[in-house]
Computed example of a mutant assay.
Amino acid sequence: MSQMTLLWVFIGAGLATFLIRLSFIAVEGRVRLPAWFRTALQFVPAAMLSALIAPDLLMRDGAVFVSPHNARLIAGVVAIVIAARTRSVGWTIAGGMAALIALEALI
């Protein structure tokens, strides 16, 4: 693929992303969304984050790897416990990363 074609792909993708996001901002207050839809939107961030993180915690080499030897899974559980206790993003990231580094050194 030529560099010029690749440039047009990037410009098109950026424009499409911009317009999709702008559409939600532009219709804010003008369109009344159903209550069930507004309620469902509250769960989108958690669902997206789970969809991004779960495969990294639960899989290795394309297969499910739930084991005490899975350092990422154990560090993820540690991070979940820290998040539930402290409600602090900073402590959750720091504790989860510290657990991961320590576990990868041990396992």
Rank of each mutant, 00 (worst) to 15 (best):
F24C: 05
A83P: 03
L100M: 02
A99E: 09
N70W: 01
P55D: 06
P55S: 03
R38I: 08
V81I: 12
V31F: 14
S23H: 08
A75N: 11
V27Q: 03
P68N: 10
A83E: 03
A26I: 11
E104T: 14
G62V: 09
W36Q: 15
I93V: 08
L33P: 06
L103G: 05
L22Y: 14
I93F: 01
V64K: 00
L15K: 02
A54T: 05
A102Q: 04
R72D: 12
V44K: 06
G62T: 07
L73I: 01
I25C: 05
D61G: 02
G62Q: 12
R30D: 07
L41D: 12
A40C: 05
V66Y: 06
A102W: 07
L49C: 07
R30H: 11
L100G: 02
T5Q: 14
R32A: 12
S50Y: 15
T5L: 15
V89R: 08
F37W: 15
R21Y: 14
R60F: 08
L57N: 04
V64A: 09
D56P: 00
M59W: 15
S50G: 15
I93T: 06
S2Y: 01
S50Q: 14
S67D: 06
L22N: 09
I74V: 15
S88V: 05
H69F: 09
